[in-house]
Amino acid sequence: MNDLDLLRGAWDEPAPPARAAREAARAALLDRAAASKETIVPPTTVPPATETPAAAARRTRRVRLPKAGVRLAAVGVLAAAIAAGVTVVQGSGGTDEHGRPRSAVPGVPAGPVANASEALERAARAAESRPFTPPRPDQWIFTEFRGRKGSTPNGPLSRDPGKIRVTRHWQRADGKKAALIEKGRLEILGTMPTTPPSDYPSLAAMPTEPGALLAWAYRGLGGLGETAEGRYSTTYTMLGAVLRDNVLPPKVEAALYRAIKRIPGVRLERGVDAAGRPALALGRLTEGWLSEQLLIDPKTYTYLGERSVAVKDHTSRGDDGSLTYRKGDLGILSVRLKAAVVDKPGQTAP
C-alpha cells in the first residue's frame, strides 16, 4: 500500500448526494439548457373546446377579474412607475465567508437566477420544501396585502407613497364564508363560485401535474380562450390570482409555478423593486404595452405580490372616456404581507 492508497483509504467513501439536491441541480441545468435555445415551448396539450356555448357563456361571466376591479372593457388597463435607478438585489441566504451566495432554501441552488424558467422552478421547489398542514374546514385563510391607490379607476397609480392602503381578507376553508373589514368593522359575507376557484377544497383538488393544470386552466377560459394569445394572457393572470389569494398545498403551488413556466412570453425582468422590497419579477407583455408581473421573493422564492408597468405610452378608449398611461406608469402594485391559516375571521396571526 503506497501513500496514495493510504490517502484514498483514510477518507470514507462519500455518502451519496441527497435526492433533493440532485433533482434541483438537474432541473437547474435543464432549465438553463432550455432557455438558451431561446425558443418558447408551447404547452403540450391544448384541450379542444368541449363546452357547450351556454356553459362557456356561464363560465365567461364567472371569470374573475383582476383584483383592482378592472372591467372587461378596460382589460389591460393596469400599469406602473418603474422606480428609476433601482438596482437588482438578487441574493439568497446571505453569503458565506468568501462572499459567495448561500442558498436560503434547502434543495434550491444559491446564486442569481438566469431566466424566468429558473426563477419559477426555484419557486416551485421552495414551495415543495415548505412544511404544510392543511386547514380544517372550520378554519380561515387569511391574506393581507399592501398596495398603492390611484386617483382614477383603472388609471395609473398615484406616485404619492402616502396613498398606500392595507387590505385584509378572510375566507373559510370550506369556501362558504368570507370576511373583510368594512368601515372598521368585520363583515361576514357569503361566497359565490368563481373562475378560477377560490375555495380551498377546489384548489386542493387541482391537478398537480403542470401540463394537466394548464389544460384545466384552458378549459375554464370560456370566450377569452379563443385565440392563443387570449389563452396565454388570461391563464397567466388567472394562475397568478390563485397564487395571490390563497394558502395552497405545496404540490398545487409548485404545479402553478411550473404551469406558468410553460406559458409563452413570460420573462425575468430586472431592476425591480416592489414597495421598498427587492423582488424577482416575472413579466408578460399584454396588448403590446403593459408588462404584467408576478413578484417572487429573491431570497426565499415565496410569492411576494404583483405589479404591472406600462412599457410605452398608451391611451385606451372606453365608453367612459379615455385613459392615458405614460411609459413607466404603474397599474397595479400589490404586495402580499401575510398568508396564513387562522382559527377565526378577524384574526391576523395563527
Binding site: P14, P16, P17, A18, A21, A24, A25, A28, P109, G111
Partner: peptide, 19 residues
C-alpha cells in the same frame, strides 16, 4: 458531488456540484 463533499462537506458540495 462526492469529490466536492470530501473536500468541502455536503452542504457546499450541493452548490459546487450543481454549479
Amino acid at each position: 458531488h462526492g469529490y466536492a463533499a470530501r473536500r468541502l462537506g455536503h452542504g457546499l458540495a450541493d452548490d459546487v456540484a450543481a454549479e
